[in-house]
Simulated assay, not measured.
Amino acid sequence: MASTPLMRAMAPFFAPIWCAQLLTGAKSFVDNPLIGSSRLNHWGLHVARLRLAHAMSDRRRAGLAGAVDPADRAAFDRDGVVEIRNFLPDAIFAALQQQILAYRGPARETVQGDAVTRRLALDGTARQAIPAFADFHQDRRWRGLSRYVASFDIEPLLYIQSILPRRHDAPPDPQTQFHSDTFYPNMKAWLFLEDVPMESGPFAYVRGSHRLTPQRIAWERERSLAVRDGTCRLSARGSFRVEESELAALGLPAPTRFAVPANTLLIADTFGFHARAQASVPATRIELWAYGRRNPFRPLTGWDVWSLPGIAERRIPLRWWLGDKAARIAPQPWRPVGHKGPADE
């Protein structure tokens, strides 16, 4: 995106903000002209941020490793994704499944291409209505692994999420193209409440793509030089897309598609390449969905005020409220759709 006269005129005012963002998780090559500068990235800016963020993540993870089951840690370090079937005891999972499917609360939806995603916040009201959630939330294996993958001792954002049947009058869902969420390690997780067959469009992940190899560094550098002026809007905003045909040159295997039974936990570092596989039949997928991300350059592993009880469960309603208030400046992608259940049409 070319510099405009207005941008050049405003540069002295925004320059301190743009500089400060270099030591945050800011990733957009179009919103920050320093991050998007081909000259600075030719000199190594993007690669320097990439290397530093991953080095700090490795250091934080080393301090969290003791709380993780050794087999889970080995699987994650090797693959970047961990699959655990029969995660909860049968009776607890049955109660959790029943309570979530019966729950109705303030829902938000977003549309990406032909896909509609619905989320309900697991706030204080939802947690009271779903008492079995506490068994998952307090599970030692979940807490240790989710924090290790995120590289922070933080409470992730937690939602009830539904992937609804695809619309037939829209372009393809951009989440079906393999991509990296951002330039630094972060965590997403899914506890599937129903079976996820192959035809319903399961989560797909390129094992080992979370590692910062020489091939990946070279690929990231090349993307950083041209992505700002490319045709892919999401790549230009820092979520680099990758073609499956490129994986072999990066020393990576073909993607794994996780068609799994209910009560499977998947947890992944989404710096690694991942996608939502194409569905061949109309289907609704219901899951607990978790998301853990902080400033990658933050040296402290813990001491997170947003993880404190009484605050953590209020974060999602607060984020939605702030998004609504700022909608005139920045579009709010999650629109309120009233009180709904996760499986409502």
Rank of each mutant, 00 (worst) to 15 (best):
L6C: 04
R61A: 07
W320C: 06
Q278R: 12
T110D: 14
A94S: 12
R207H: 09
R166N: 09
E244W: 00
H274F: 04
R147L: 00
G25T: 15
S180L: 01
T264Y: 07
I100T: 13
I100E: 15
S307A: 04
P253V: 01
V206Q: 03
L191V: 02
T182H: 04
V227Y: 04
W190Y: 11
R108T: 12
D135R: 04
D135V: 01
A259H: 05
P255H: 02
F13D: 08
L52Q: 10
A248R: 13
F29E: 08
T284F: 11
A2C: 08
A262Y: 06
M187P: 02
L34D: 14
T176V: 12
A11R: 15
I163A: 01
P172W: 06
F76R: 03
I286T: 06
A15L: 15
R276N: 01
P185G: 02
T182V: 09
R108F: 09
I217P: 01
W219E: 09
A254I: 02
N86H: 11
E313K: 02
L6V: 09
D229L: 03
L6S: 10
L308E: 08
A129F: 03
R39I: 14
R108V: 11
Y205R: 04
A134I: 11
Y184I: 01
L288K: 09
F192C: 00
H168Y: 04
R140H: 07
P331T: 03
L234I: 15
S162A: 15
T231R: 13
T182Y: 12
F178V: 02
D304K: 03
F76T: 12
D79A: 08
N32A: 10
T231G: 07
R276T: 05
I84V: 11
E287P: 03
N186F: 05
K27I: 06
I154V: 11
P331I: 09
E287A: 06
P89L: 05
I329A: 08
H274N: 02
T256R: 03
E155N: 00
A2Q: 06
P261W: 05
S239E: 07
A11K: 13
F203E: 01
F152D: 01
P89C: 10
W190N: 07
